[in-house]
């Protein structure tokens, strides 16, 4: 298996969704998509973790902005009922304009990411690593490239997918990690601001 929706649709983070109509045309491009309205009054147990990194990650996670979570489900249901008449369906020009920027560096990053996945699947992490690093350098806004690479290392266990960074006493192969990146860029930028 390999990631495909980044190159095909411009998905750079998850959860994201793309709406495709009966004619196989995209009527909403890749954008943050939510299964339910924002939860209120729920406190992550990770905030109380005795591991400082996990507590810091949980703290940053509470600051992430789920831009359209409260209305997303209603928008999907409206489109299901009304199809092309739904006011959530975007004109073609808006679909393209909202689909995210991609320049030559973005294309090169996708190519490097494809090679990295190929070598990683082949058990050649030593060959995959420089391509992961190149993808990260060329497309720093792409969380898919980073989170996939970071999750292939780090502590084993159920919290591995949250850790995404260095461990005490071990060399970290990448120039950044989830916590460092989100602290420097700001949790509010984790998802591109969107409106329905």
């Amino acid at each position: 298996m390999a990631h495909q929706v980044d190159a095909a649709f411009g998905v750079v983070n998850i959860p994201n969704a793309v709406w495709i109509d009966e004619n196989f045309d995209i009527v909403r491009p890749a954008e943050p998509a939510w299964p339910a309205p924002r939860a209120t009054g729920v406190r992550s147990p990770l905030l109380d973790s005795d591991q400082a990194r996990l507590a810091a990650i949980a703290g940053q996670a509470t600051k992430i902005v789920s831009w359209t979570a409260d209305e997303y489900g209603d928008a999907v249901r409206d489109w299901a009922r009304n199809g092309a008449a739904s006011h959530y369906v975007l004109p073609a020009d808006d679909v393209l304009a909202r689909s995210g920027r991609r320049d030559g560096n973005g294309s090169a990053a996708a190519a490097h990411f494809a090679l990295a996945q190929h070598f990683e699947r082949d058990g050649r992490h030593d060959r995959a690593l420089p391509h992961f690093r190149a993808a990260h350098r060329l497309a720093p806004e792409n969380w898919t490239y980073k989170r996939q690479a970071w999750s292939l290392t780090g502590p084993e266990g159920p919290l591995k997918r949250f850790w995404q960074g260095p461990q005490d006493g071990q060399e970290w192969e990448y120039d950044s990690d989830w916590l460092a990146d989100i602290e420097s860029s700001g949790a509010e930028t984790y998802y591109r601001p969107t409106q329905l």
Partner: peptide, 10 residues
């Protein structure tokens, strides 16, 4: 890599 001539992902 994917096309980039339009400057957009799509």
């Amino acid at each position: 890599g994917p096309e980039s001539f339009s400057g957009r992902a799509l």
